[in-house]
């Protein structure tokens, strides 16, 4: 189907120059397009760049200004946000001067939103902790307000297949701030973009917000097989060595807890939450005692005595094995 701006572009070039009035006509036609797509953005961008010498200076300013102000909308359909109790949510750019990364990519960047995807938020944090290059390689800034995230299709039955998912940088804002995953620095985009693209790939936030495994995310980002283990299957020293080796090899690691009403595990006053996933940051040995370093993907809430409440803490290995049910390793 021919776009509404196409005939305007042709007409404007008929006399080899594009006046301010003709530019205004093009912009007016663009605004009546039913949806401003990446294709239309590319069509107009190409017109401006290819015919730069034919544009009246005022026409050039008007068209470039229009292009700059217009981001293709590729928002994610999200039935959950249609609910009555979420009517105060609006999709909006997270911050006017937001960028993909602020300083370096770190495990501490990620803050989980208000959906049940702790496996995803902790997994993102694990990937950042293991090898930030995997995240950088996965995200492409399209320089038009959109970003393309490269995932790998499940590799369980063969060679990984690249899947590209494009999203814009709008986030769902409610009275309490971002509703989905975000960065602790409000000007940093990558955690929210990765979650948004993953959700778009899988059918929506509803589909990723009903649980999942960090293994699937690890495979999707690295393209390498991931494994999970029941912690009770391992001897303490073997488990400690396995975690230490994986982290040293820059492999992402996450661990999940038992039920918060488990009759044999009492989470009360431990600072650890049941039915939750945590990033495994590493291991340490102090005074002959082995510890596992962890991070709550909320970015807060941790056992007492671990410094500022940033969600980062360490547990003696024995406590870790008592409180955590399973552990997932990326490739």
């Amino acid at each position: 189907m021919v776009s509404k701006i196409a005939p305007r572009l042709t007409a404007a070039l008929a006399d080899k120059t594009v006046s301010k009035q003709e530019a205004d006509d093009i912009i007016a036609a663009a605004k009546t397009e039913p949806k401003w797509t990446p294709q239309l953005q590319a069509e107009l961008s190409t017109f401006v760049s290819k015919n730069a010498s034919k544009l009246d200076p005022q026409a050039k300013v008007a068209l470039e200004s229009f292009l700059k102000s217009t981001h293709p909308r590729v928002d994610l359909p999200d039935p959950a946000l249609q609910k009555a109790d979420r009517t105060d949510v609006t999709w909006t750019p997270v911050a006017p001067d937001a960028t993909l990364y602020v300083d370096t990519i770190s495990a501490d960047d990620v803050a989980q939103g208000y959906i049940g995807d702790c496996y995803l938020a902790s997994g993102l944090s694990s990937l950042a902790n293991a090898n930030p290059e995997n995240i950088k390689k996965a995200i492409t800034d399209n320089k038009d307000g959109t970003y393309t995230v490269r995932f790998f299709q499940n590799v369980a039955s063969g060679h990984p297949k690249a899947v590209n998912v494009t999203v814009d940088d709008d986030v769902a804002m409610g009275k309490s701030g971002p509703q989905y995953a975000s960065a602790r620095d409000s000007k940093e985009l990558w955690p929210g973009l990765l979650e948004k693209a993953y959700a778009k790939w899988k059918g929506g936030y509803d589909k990723v917000g009903n649980g999942g495994t960090a293994c699937d995310l690890f495979q999707a980002i690295t393209g390498k097989p991931a494994t999970d283990e029941t912690i009770g299957d391992s001897a303490p020293d073997a488990l400690f060595k396995k975690i230490s080796t994986a982290v040293a090899a820059h492999r992402p690691v996450a661990a999940g807890t038992y039920a918060d009403d488990d009759p044999k595990v009492h989470y009360t006053n431990t600072g650890v939450h049941g039915d939750h996933f945590y990033t495994v940051l590493g291991t340490s040995e102090e005074g002959g005692q082995k510890y596992v370093q962890l991070r709550n993907p909320w970015g807060f809430s941790e056992p007492a005595g671990n410094g500022p409440d940033d969600g980062i803490f360490k547990l003696p290995l024995a406590d870790f094995m008592k409180l955590y049910e399973n552990i997932e390793f990326g490739g």
Binding site: A80, N154, K161, V163, V165, K200, W201, G203, K207
Partner: peptide, 17 residues
């Protein structure tokens, strides 16, 4: 739950499955 679907059977894929 908030968005219950598929009392007996629920199926959904992704954009690639």
């Amino acid at each position: 739950g908030e968005t219950p679907t598929g009392g007996a059977v629920s199926l959904s894929g992704s954009t690639t499955a």
